[in-house]
């Protein structure tokens, strides 16, 4: 009776060893069918209307390997994305924490956060162009404004969602304010913060592309506009696929970080 319920313990602690390949099979078949249909359709239709996957791959090879313009576009989009998103994460978590923790800060900042969160941030791009020009700074500003609000709002929710009983527990053990923050409030709100980081990431990627399409000087968004205007449909798909890949990679990186930092969260 000392080790009660060992069966429950092992089943929760260890993932099932036997892996099923069925999901991968379904995904594979689906991909083959969709890409195959697309290829057949693409070859029969006007190439300006729809490029086939093979034509897109050929265009991608040409762009990725040979075009300095494309390589630069990826680097520019990525650096502005990472900079703006990084700033938004830092500021968003700090502001969200302060707003969730101190009523005064919340009352003072809430009107702006609510108003700006409700405003489509792309509507601000013309104003931001006047302030920041049309290059790097503009993209960083747009990414920042796109990402920061979901991060703030989720962090506030996380800080406020802290279990009162656990706060009382920290108090019963005479934890200081700083210790309570570190050992209770921060870990408790981490899953919420990560939810905000994921939403903020998606918003930031939309932001950088829209900024590049509007200012249309450089970056993947500008390339999309250029190939669209030139009716180069196969090339047009390449920056779109690149953006999709970047999104997937960054989302995956955030999820990985979340798994490492909140290992308990999957258990509940």
């Amino acid at each position: 009776m000392v080790h009660d319920a060992p069966a429950m313990v092992t089943s929760a602690a260890l993932p099932p060893v036997r892996r099923s390949w069925t999901p991968w099979l379904i995904r594979g078949v689906s991909l083959v069918v969709v890409l195959g249909t697309w290829e057949i359709l693409g070859r029969r239709l006007d190439p300006v209307f729809l490029a086939s996957p093979s034509a897109i791959v050929a265009a991608a090879y040409g762009l990725v390997v040979r075009s300095r313009e494309f390589q630069n576009a990826i680097i520019e989009s990525m650096t502005s994305m990472v900079t703006g998103y990084g700033l938004a994460s830092g500021v968003g978590i700090m502001v969200g924490f302060s707003m969730g923790r101190w009523r005064t800060v919340e009352l003072a900042l809430d009107p702006y956060v609510t108003a700006l969160y409700a405003t489509p941030r792309v509507a601000l791009i013309p104003l931001l162009i006047l302030w920041f020009g049309i290059a790097f700074e503009l993209r960083v500003a747009v990414v920042f404004l796109s990402s920061v609000f979901p991060i703030i709002i989720n962090t506030i929710a996380g800080v406020k969602h802290v279990d009162e009983d656990l706060l009382e527990t920290a108090r019963a053990f005479a934890a200081t304010q700083a210790q309570t923050l570190r050992t209770v409030i921060l870990p408790s709100s981490l899953p919420f913060i990560f939810a905000g980081l994921r939403v903020g990431l998606a918003a930031g990627i939309i932001g950088v592309i829209v900024a590049e399409m509007t200012a249309a000087v450089s970056g993947l968004g500008a390339l999309i506009m250029k190939f669209g205007n030139l009716f180069q449909t196969a090339q047009l798909f390449v920056p779109i696929v690149a953006i999709a890949l970047i999104s997937v990679l960054m989302t995956w990186a955030i999820k990985l970080l979340e798994r490492v930092l909140t290992p308990w969260h999957r258990l509940e």
Partner: peptide
Amino acid sequence: LAPSRQKAFVFQHFNLFPWR
């Protein structure tokens, strides 16, 4: 009259920290 680690508390619903 203040909380102190000289006075330890055991809670009905355990109150363990799920992240620890």
